[in-house]
Write a protein that binds this DNA or RNA. Structure first.
Lengths: 214, 214
DNA sequence: TAGATTGTTAATCGATTAACAATC
DNA sequence: TAGATTGTTAATCGATTAACAATC
């Protein structure tokens, strides 16, 4: 449990999904226990940092033993909110929207894709993995009447903010935005602006880093 | 120019693409000059941080005036290595690979997509935006003989490391990995492991943050 | 010139690492 | 028990913010 409402820093929060993933891999490889030292070596973190991170939420380990992998993964999943399920819609049924719809891990972790939306009449009415593509004009009405909590935006950047606004008006609680522009939301809605190209530009920076120095 | 080989921190580097994007938007809106204060308000950063960040690379501003938007964007693009062009291949021609192939900004910023690769015989031989999908068995040979610098991995995670190894053996300099697992590379190759789902889990964390506190 | 805003140094804040007593 | 490893406090390191002289 988190100690007395001390705010956990975003630096820690953004490492949690990585812990979750590595612990999942360990489970997959039938590893039952792990020390902060071993996990650190695996993930490229210090043992100290791992213990600090985990102790923001509680004492999940045991002196002299380490951590029970299954138990720890379950705890972190629960902290991340992955023990719940979420009704989702994808807005924009192009390649990226379809890629996300097809992603296996999505359903496994409790994300229930209820519908997709698009403007393209050729796509409307089609089905992707049992998921119907609906007319984007019906987005607001659908979101409102189907208790959608998460909206996933895969439309061109020109339309991302107006799609977000429609989602928010109809009580979406979170937006996962893949349009290459930052979408704004009110305080009671959470947002992740993904901006995929940023990691590509970081890559080219690193490719050229040496030649930057004088 | 970077002052005497002082290593720029990754915290700064990862903000550069965002500066580049926001400056591009300003250019698009015909804004010719901007102060660190205004840019900070726009991007949600302090003016002080912006000046600190930019001065890792040089004095691009002018006292009493601010920054010339076009000039600054060009400088940052150049720092990011975007003034060069790069030969790229996409490995995995499913939805995600196709989404990236279709991304407009990709070509605009000097990323030249030379070919795509897949195992699926139904995809091999097809064409996406003039780009041929080739047999993954020919990947190594193709990469070697076509001076490919960047490999983009969009295959299932089980195959991501072996694809990376093939790319590296054939002199790729950078890997942009979308498989949901961390790929390892030697020191002379740069890697960005994207792990898209991590931002989704951060989102669900933030959705549930309040209920975590005691 | 006067006002504005930079570049840069100093101060503060926060995150990471180190150390070690507690304990399984 | 002895060895291992945690949880946690203290020390260090790095990043952000504040302040201000320089200057356009």
């Amino acid at each position: 449990m988190q100690r007395n409402s001390i705010k956990v820093s975003m630096a820690v929060v953004r490492r949690l999904p990585k812990y979750y993933r590595y612990l999942g891999d360990l489970i997959h490889n039938d590893v039952m226990r792990i020390s902060s030292k071993e996990l650190g070596k695996l993930m490229g973190l210090t043992a100290s940092q791992i213990r600090q991170d985990l102790n923001c939420f509680g004492g999940f380990g045991q002196q002299g033993y380490g951590y029970n992998v299954i138990e720890l993964q379950k705890e972190i999943g629960s902290i991340l909110g992955l023990s719940k399920s979420y009704n989702c819609v994808i807005v924009g049924a192009g390649n990226l929207g379809q890629a996300i719809a097809n992603y296996e891990g999505f359903k496994r972790e409790g994300f229930i894709l209820k519908a997709m939306f698009d403007v393209n009449p050729r796509l409307i009415g089609n089905t992707i993995r049992d998921i119907k593509i609906l007319d984007i004009l019906d987005l607001g009405e659908y979101v409102k009447s189907n208790d959608i909590q998460i909206g996933i935006i895969c439309v061109p950047k020109e339309h991302s903010q107006s799609v977000a606004d429609t989602l928010i008006e109809n009580n979406v609680k979170a937006i996962w935005n893949f349009a290459p522009t930052d979408v704004s939301v009110p305080d009671n809605v959470v947002i992740e602006n993904v901006a995929i190209s940023e990691s590509l530009y970081t890559l080219t920076y690193l490719m050229n880093e040496d030649s930057l120095n004088i």
